[in-house]
Design a protein around this nucleic acid. Structure first.
Length: 281
DNA sequence: ATCCAGGAAAACG
DNA sequence: CGTTTTCATGGA
């Protein structure tokens, strides 16, 4: 068991961070412990005011994973450009963007399309159960998220049982296309934002929204501003008055919204997106 | 039954 | 080229 004390000027809320919908494999018990599978390990963690208590990971790993090395206060000052975002920031104090495992994040957001968070969580869990490695922790079974080869080797038969609907071929095709995770990660990491975005969108099942989420939540490209139905509503009501009223979000509308956000909130507009999303209710 | 959910691909003018 | 339709699933 490790402990870690957060400095007074180091804002962090474990509940906001794990509960805001950016990540899908964490659960909180009634006793106040969060359990999550990250990589090959189960992590158990809790927060008591300024103290973090955890096992299954080292202090440097936790620091990296929860972006505790970043000066959140400074980032929030740069995006705090109007009363509406200011209120969202105050309501979601301590929310940080997680550095998610990249491949898992990619599949997660391929599975997220036209769906809701409980359903996405179930899909990721099912894929892990089908193809992942079993991990026993405190007598309970958990499953790591599988490598691409584990999914492609089955020839797609087992994937069809994961209830992904029309997303099944997207996941399979993308697993085939990625092949080597390390190489893929390095390629995307080395690219500038727009180029990386175009590269991700070549993958099956990856459109503008999924690409932006992966760039923001896994590659730390904070210029990304994912636009889902909620963000679109918020931007429409509070920021951009005259958007055309079509049922689906067209490519031009998406670009209009994300470019406005990049201008208005600045280079950390991705943080603004997550605060707006988390404060939506 | 109808609508909705952190959309994307295919089909269509 | 931009715009509409289709897609599978489960919960409300």
């Amino acid at each position: 068991m490790h402990t870690m004390n957060l400095s007074p000027d180091q804002q962090f809320s474990l509940d906001q961070t794990l509960g805001c919908g950016q990540v899908f494999r964490w659960d909180k018990t009634d006793a106040g412990w969060w359990y999550g599978v990250v990589g090959r390990h189960v992590i158990k963690i809790r927060q008591d005011s300024r103290k973090l208590t955890f096992e299954g990971a080292s202090v440097p790993f936790i620091t990296q994973y929860f972006s505790l090395d970043l000066d959140l206060q400074l980032i929030l000052e740069t995006i705090d450009r109007d009363p509406f975002i200011d209120s969202a920031i105050r309501r979601c104090q301590g929310l940080r963007l997680i550095r998610q495992p990249k491949w898992e994040c990619l599949i997660s957001y391929i599975c997220s399309t036209n769906s809701n968070i409980p359903m996405i969580r179930r899909r990721i869990g099912t894929i892990a159960e089908q193809f992942g490695r079993e991990i026993i922790f405190e007598g309970k079974k958990y499953y790591s998220f599988p490598e691409p080869s584990a999914i492609t080797c089955s020839g797609g038969k087992a994937l069809a049982e994961c209830r992904l609907g029309y997303r099944t071929p997207y996941v399979f095709n993308t697993a085939c296309a990625i092949g080597n995770i390390k190489q893929w990660e390095e390629t995307i990491t080395s690219m500038a934002f727009e180029a990386a975005r175009r590269e991700l969108m070549k993958l099956s099942g990856v459109g503008p929204k999924a690409a932006d989420c992966v760039l923001l939540f896994a590659f730390q490209k904070h210029e990304a501003f994912p636009v889902d139905v909620w963000i679109r509503r918020i931007m429409q009501q509070h920021y951009i008055r005259n958007l055309s009223i079509t049922s689906g979000l067209t490519g031009r509308e998406y670009d209009c919204i994300r470019r406005f956000a990049r201008e208005h909130f600045g280079e950390y507009c991705g943080y603004a997106q997550e605060y707006l999303y988390a404060a939506r209710l």
